[in-house]
Design a binder for these strands. Structure first.
Length: 220
DNA sequence: GACCAGGCACATC
DNA sequence: GATGTGCATGGT
């Protein structure tokens, strides 16, 4: 198993090169992006980030002082904007309640405890929590997303309906706990997903063609 | 105009 | 625990 996951990584890295993720200037920007990009293309999120920036709201205090109804129109382009305005607010409320709005303090919290806390925030599920932890706070945790599952299941390595935790455990049990590796690996999977492994796949240009059928034991 | 995009909460069985 | 539904914009 270690071998397959390592080979896939090498192949992707060799094909696409380093991805330099996450595209954000600050940790906070990354965290906001993680919430806004839920089931949404990054292109639409970028516009929303830009609007927040222009309105001086791309920092904890900035969002803290806006009402949900004032925040919503600024992030309109990211879709589900009323829902997401509430999610951003609940995250910021958590940030102030637990860490006084200070990301450095938040970063000092232990990974497992912080993950649990984040999952308790309304609007933050496993992928968003892990994106915040890995890309925002540089904690060593593997992020699973729709592309990750699709790529692995298309190649017969996991079931289509393997759970989030199941897939995450697969990577974390078989790879060194290295935040830079986790960062790059997930970024490469998303890139592969965008380039070739969409809902209608382009297997003719898939660099993982040779990996088909390497089903991983113990994962339904 | 249909389909899709780096999810999540909530209702229901 | 599994399955279905609402949430919404913008690109192809």
């Amino acid at each position: 198993m270690k071998r397959i996951l390592t080979k896939i990584y090498r192949k992707l890295h060799q094909t696409y090169g380093p991805r330099h993720w996450w595209p954000g200037e600050t940790s906070f920007e990354v965290m906001v992006g993680a919430i806004l990009t839920q089931n949404t293309s990054w292109r639409n999120v970028e516009k929303a980030i830009q609007r927040l920036k222009e309105n001086g709201a791309l920092n904890p205090e900035g969002i803290h002082r806006l009402k949900r109804s004032q925040l919503a129109p600024l992030i309109r382009s990211s879709g589900y904007y009323r829902i997401k305005a509430g999610r951003l607010k609940s995250f910021i409320n958590f940030l102030f309640a637990e860490y006084g709005g200070d990301l450095r303090r938040m970063r000092r919290e232990r990974l497992v405890a912080l993950r649990q806390e984040l999952l308790g925030v309304k609007g933050i599920g496993p992928e968003t929590a892990d994106s915040i932890l890995l890309y925002g706070l540089e904690k060593p945790i593997f992020v699973v997303d729709a592309y990750t599952k699709r790529i692995l299941s298309r190649h017969g390595m996991i079931s289509e309906k393997a759970s989030y935790e199941e897939v995450q455990k697969l990577f974390m049990d078989h790879l060194p706990r290295d935040k830079k590796l986790f960062n790059e690996y997930h970024a490469l999977l998303v890139h592969l997903g965008k380039m070739v492994c969409q809902k209608t796949p382009r297997c003719d240009i898939c660099p993982l063609e040779g990996f088909k059928g390497s089903r991983i034991q113990g994962v339904k």
